[in-house]
Design a binder for these strands. Structure first.
Lengths: 334, 334
DNA sequence: CTGAAAGCGCTTACAG
DNA sequence: CTGAAAGCGCTTACAG
């Protein structure tokens, strides 16, 4: 309590113990040969006096920062927020264990100046990209600079370490279950095909039809639904075509679809069934409860962080890691 | 493009120009006397060769990091997320302009070990607290350590720099408007009184009654509503008492109230009117649209960051900054 | 106006 | 097993 202002340094410890800074450093890092008794003494002193090495100085000497950069987009829908948040929680959990901290970078889609600044200032040892694009300036920049990085979510760029849920399989399994339950006319509503993830989901949808040797009806697939007007129009079309079930590629779309159905006086699941993709708290209050895929986003974040730290420490890492999912059947498809 | 690996340093610049490192440093920082022509030469060379000083080294020499820590709670409701997010956007905007970066710290309510680690590791120059408690371990720790910090939201701790929206006035004005429109029996639903903000809102509510010389009905005030069951029960009571309007202290409560009212077959605003507090995207899809207070959270974040940076640079800052609000009347109180 | 030198607090060959 | 010294890339009194 007495000396809050002046921080104790490695020299102080060395002087107090009558050894060299080298020895103190070795006792702490565990690197290099050092007498057992000496190490104990140093460690005991450090413990007692609550000495913490200055990470900044350590970093300068080792050309490391013990920070990782997490890049988040500056524009996003409410529905994305829990995803980013949970991913960051997972990242933080792993990073914290390894004494790394998270430096936040908020980037607009086509403006990577923020990321560039952080990299040029050498403020981080690696980067996690929380959202990627089909054509992605961040990925190109980081690859070129040879900075360790990993993407959360899939990308088609080569030689990029990526961690993702298996959206294709997930969508295939969900669709297959619905088909098996006798629904034939299933509509699919999705967002921008500029996102690899939406392409993958669509692919899973098609595969489930292929698996049973049927054709899906391309008139019932509505992609690139950006904005409520588009969604409402899609629902109008759907209602005119005796569709049995609607699969929404995310909970924001689902939320809007539910609203529109209510407006049109349609009951779920009696008039039409519906399934969604994230099981997020956004739909928590829905009545009836909504059948949905469930992904462990925190796990996704944790895994991406593990992969990044491994890269930073020059270990081999798998280029692609696919995490599992669960299909949660609820009332909306009964 | 040729030398991506090896970074150019101040020595390289000095050597190339045949001047000393001191001179280069001065040309960049603008501190200390330096010949005009010399400065131009250095600056031109730097520009041409895209030299960026190593911020870490600079920080070590100046005992600064050019990072600020933003502390977020690890547990929160979906409704809080847009708030945190927007505040961070505002912080980032100001911090970025001053070449500061954001280090994220995710803390559980009573566990400040993450924050302690960051501070002890000297990774940041100051801290922004995004959520505070009536009894707050973070505030006590930071005060004791004499680390510059500011809270977003009010606190009753002394000598703490805080930036907040004027929730008391906001709630008073909203209530006054409703009273003036002839509603007399107004119910108030709020969250935990452990949050200073909820106490302030309640205070504003009372003041609006005082202003017109009436008593508010304490049986219609429901605080500490944690969880849906409590909210539903409050609504039951409210419906048994001919209440004309319900004020919800946040959009999550409002969302649940709306759901319950729908279940009970009550129409808004014909059977009962309702107003809420955040105008957040959570209620965006509501029909009818919900009368609400509106706060500029991004501005709140920006202001808190300005105050922190001023503190870090040892400038005088106001202990308390109150930001404005707007009352947005919509269909739910017609 | 400019520079040599010490210092920020660590790490790490190198030598013993 | 241990230490003196150089180095990480900057800044800043101090001297000229």
């Amino acid at each position: 309590m007495e000396n809050e202002k002046k921080n104790i340094t490695i020299s102080d410890v060395a002087d107090a113990l009558g050894v060299s800074k080298t020895t103190v450093s070795r006792a702490i890092s565990g690197k290099g040969r050092i007498g057992d008794e000496t190490r104990q003494r140093v460690l005991a002193y450090i413990e007692e006096h609550d000495y913490k090495p200055n990470v900044i100085a350590k970093g300068l000497a080792q050309s490391k920062t013990f920070n990782i950069c997490v890049v988040m987009p500056s524009s996003y829908a409410l529905v994305d927020l829990p995803f980013f948040q949970e991913a960051i929680m997972g990242i933080q959990e792993i990073a914290g264990m390894m004494e790394y901290d998270i430096l936040l970078c908020i980037c607009q889609e086509n403006d990577i100046s923020g990321l560039e600044r952080i990299i040029k200032n050498r403020k981080v040892d690696g980067v996690i990209l929380l959202r990627t694009f089909v054509k992605d300036a961040q990925i190109e920049f980081l690859s070129n600079k040879q900075i360790p990085f990993v993407t959360v979510g899939s990308t088609t760029y080569k030689n990029v370490v990526q961690v993702d849920n298996d959206h294709k399989s997930a969508c295939r399994e969900l669709t297959s279950i619905l088909l098996m339950r006798g629904m034939e006319k299933i509509a699919l509503l999705g967002g921008s095909e500029n996102f690899v993830v939406n392409q993958n989901r669509f692919r899973g949808f098609r595969e489930s039809y292929e698996a049973i040797g049927k054709e899906y009806d391309s008139d019932l697939v509505f992609m690139n639904l950006e904005g409520k007007a588009f969604i409402d129009r899609a629902v109008d079309t759907i209602l005119s075509k005796d569709v049995e079930c609607i699969i929404c590629m995310d909970d924001a779309i689902c939320s809007q679809v539910l609203r529109k159905l209510r407006q049109e006086g349609k009951q779920v699941p009696t008039d039409i069934k519906i399934a969604s993709f994230y099981n997020s708290s956004l739909l928590e209050n829905s009545l009836p409860s909504i059948t949905s895929l469930d992904f462990d986003t925190k796990e996704l974040g944790a895994e991406s962080c593990k992969n990044l730290l491994a890269q930073i420490e020059s270990q081999e890492v798998a280029e692609r890691t696919l995490l599992s999912y669960e299909v949660i059947m609820k009332e909306s498809t009964k």
